[in-house]
Design a protein around this nucleic acid. Structure first.
Lengths: 199, 199
DNA sequence: TAGGCGTGTTTAATATTTCAATCAACCCTG
DNA sequence: CAGGGTTGATTGAAATATTAAACACGCCTA
């Protein structure tokens, strides 16, 4: 009757409990959906029994969560729901090596969570006055959208150009060449989303 | 006594057998390393029993393979060792949308396998005459190296510039700005490696 | 405070996995 | 062809997972 998982083994119990509580399911509710007993869920979560693959599969299907997700190394991070401002990760490659603060750079793209684990990528973007992404050669096969929060930005998509102000928004197929230019004299902030992720 | 895995379930048996034979292990050898019986391996591979997590973990540790790898969706591809020329995937974003053959483009980067699953990325690169990556803004935190196979290429790393000929090679920290230009009049082919992967 | 409803946990019975041993087939080599 | 090596598959006994039901606790309301 193992009480806690040995160090070289995965703590199945903890993982299952985390997965379950993240979805705000009770043991009974999850058990009902999975077609197993609540007692079994309890035993597994306490590492009092090591479920068979078929059992774990049925349970995870009810969460729902894939086996691959369940056993992924960065389990908790991958399932995070809330992110503090300072936890948004800068993904503009040009900013990564520099010691100077990203705020001093022409643009900064801060990503919510880790897009590699999701089909939706959300960015907090910041364009300094004069910043210009240039004609975008990188045309990922996605859709992207955004809303201007602060400042103004000139957006070019295909042959159409508009200057957007706070509250304005855009939505287009990423395959169309696109370009962002801050033609104003103050910082522009945008919240954008892209699906599937482009980085 | 289930004979074959139902469609909504994972074929554990097949996966384990694939993992085992990929490493050229016999059921008995794997069993010995894992500290289980060969009969058990046999039963699992035939889907005559659904192993407990702890058992599967012990077995996979002996392969060795992580649970996450085992349950990854692209199981066989991820463990591929040999790749035919035509299976190298183009990763130059500018080439992906175009219907015209990548060979007509200024550059083509063909990746061996899927770098996302590895810490080493190898590319078969092709530069048309006049092709120029431009001053590389993307400075990933990696090391990269390459050998020129065919043609000539002018490589700039930091403040040093050299023109390399077949057989010549380079090795540098990717954080240093770098640029590749084909100043010759014929195609240049390079085999390069990068670790960790940059795309 | 009693009663109902919600948790998660425990327990004895049952179903399944796992072990140890055996079986059957194949490939060598003498 | 016999003998010893390998391989993977099978079988009844032992160990373990899973079930169904009871248990214990907290929370609300009458």
């Amino acid at each position: 009757m193992p009480e806690s998982a040995p160090s070289d083994s995965i703590d199945i119990g903890d993982r299952l409990r985390t997965a379950r509580t993240l979805r705000r399911l009770s043991q009974r509710e999850l058990a009902r959906r999975a077609g197993v007993t609540n007692g079994m869920i309890s035993q597994i979560e306490q590492n009092h029994s090591s479920p068979s693959i078929s059992s774990l599969k049925r349970i995870l299907d009810a969460v729902p969560m894939s086996m691959a997700e369940f056993f992924a190394d960065d389990f908790t991070e991958q399932n995070a729901v809330f992110f503090r401002k300072e936890d948004l990760r800068e993904i503009n490659p040009a900013n990564l090596l520099s010691k100077t603060d990203a705020d001093a750079k022409p643009f900064s793209f801060r990503q919510v969570g880790d897009a590699r684990n999701h089909t939706l990528q959300m960015l907090h973007e910041r364009y300094a006055p004069g910043a210009d992404t240039g004609p975008e050669m990188y045309s990922h096969n996605s859709e992207e959208a955004g809303i201007v929060i602060e400042g103004t930005i000139e957006v070019t998509v295909g042959d159409r150009t508009e200057t957007l102000h706070p509250g304005d928004a855009y939505l287009f197929d990423s395959r169309i060449p696109h370009r962002f230019r801050n033609t104003g004299d103050c910082v522009c902030v945008i919240v954008s989303a892209c699906s599937p992720p482009s980085f």
